[in-house]
Design a protein around this nucleic acid. Structure first.
Lengths: 197, 197
DNA sequence: CCTACCGATCGGTAGG
DNA sequence: CCTACCGATCGGTAGG
């Protein structure tokens, strides 16, 4: 991105407002004020409020998808693939960028046919992720667990990082990554402690 | 709850709509249609749209808080306390009730002074939960990890259950509870498998 | 619980 | 990029 077009700036500021107030509660006049122009002038750069949401959701969805293709067809072991994907999610969710929050929380305001297209992309991503987990189970690297439950729990678990961007001073991303990875891969229990009842 | 007052019904239907379309995008006319009356008639039972959101958020917040007091001051070990609290979160998030989703996703539309009051309740809850984890670490039951990171990851990880209420046929709640508990307590890696690099 | 209606504000357009 | 403005719809009220 060599030069930030006005459109680009508008979308960035919109993402910030959508994260803060939600898509529906954000008005074009809010956005115009943020960018420093009148509401009517926004329409010289964007077609509609809806278009902005589309651009946000799909740009990030494409990032996830292309990274998935790269990992899925690589030669790493299933565990290594999973680690790479978790790292990707942590990275994206802990960036100060509001894009992740908006995609995760506001996609339901997409309208057809974009909504279906978006959900299809997500479904494919999840399908490939589940397949990697299943391969890990088949190879004996991963415990025999329900791969869908494991996936949803994994993806869900790193979402809180979205809301933590303001406190990134306390721990850096690598610290957090290490903690979460350890938690998922080998659990929180000390090995010598007997907990099952 | 012996008899469902009209107010109770209105709040329940509102929660369903808020979950589906979001608080801001849900209109009082949508809600009126759902309940089977005119928009103006709603105001014989509730004071404002805002009041509905308040009731939803605080009723569930009180449920969490009172359960926390019960667990926090009990004689169980830290690990057992954590298991009880995770079970509570799984239970609430996997109920078909829309209350959990609304509280989690729409609290930002609360207005002052309710918003601050709500966040204070949440802060206290988190503080007590972190304290339990820290006690587990001090006792050597739990690995030495950052308790705040562990907590947020834990609480975040069960949220996907909210969106899964429609597919509850495939696995029952106990199945899911077992899977998630195992994942958190001892991880997804087979013990004999060497993964650290 | 309804009809009738309010002031405000919404996303967006016309025309320059 | 602005002024001026649009039809629609919002949360809510008056009065019965």
């Amino acid at each position: 991105m060599i030069k930030k077009s006005k459109k680009h700036i508008i979308i960035e500021e919109a993402a910030r407002l959508f994260r803060e107030k939600g898509y529906s509660a954000t008005t074009m006049r809010d956005l115009a004020a943020q960018v420093g122009m009148e509401a009517a002038s926004l329409y010289n750069h964007i077609k509609s409020k809806e278009e902005i949401l589309n651009e946000i959701c799909f740009s990030l969805a494409r990032t996830y998808s292309s990274k998935m293709q790269e990992v899925y067809y690589s030669d790493y072991t299933p565990i290594s693939k999973i680690k790479k994907l978790i790292a990707l999610h942590i990275q994206i969710n802990s960036m100060s960028s509001p894009l992740a929050t908006v995609m995760n929380d506001e996609w339901k305001h997409l309208t057809e046919p974009c909504k279906t297209e978006f959900l299809d992309m997500r479904k494919k991503y999840e399908y490939q992720f589940i397949d990697i987990i299943q391969q890990g189970i088949d190879k004996g690297e991963i415990k025999n667990m329900n791969p869908r439950i494991a996936l949803y729990t994994l993806l869900s678990s790193v979402r809180w990082l979205q809301h933590w961007y303001h406190a990134n001073q306390e721990h850096n991303v690598n610290d957090i990554k290490k903690n979460i990875m350890e938690l998922f891969l080998s659990g929180m229990i000390e090995n010598q402690y007997e907990w099952k009842n």
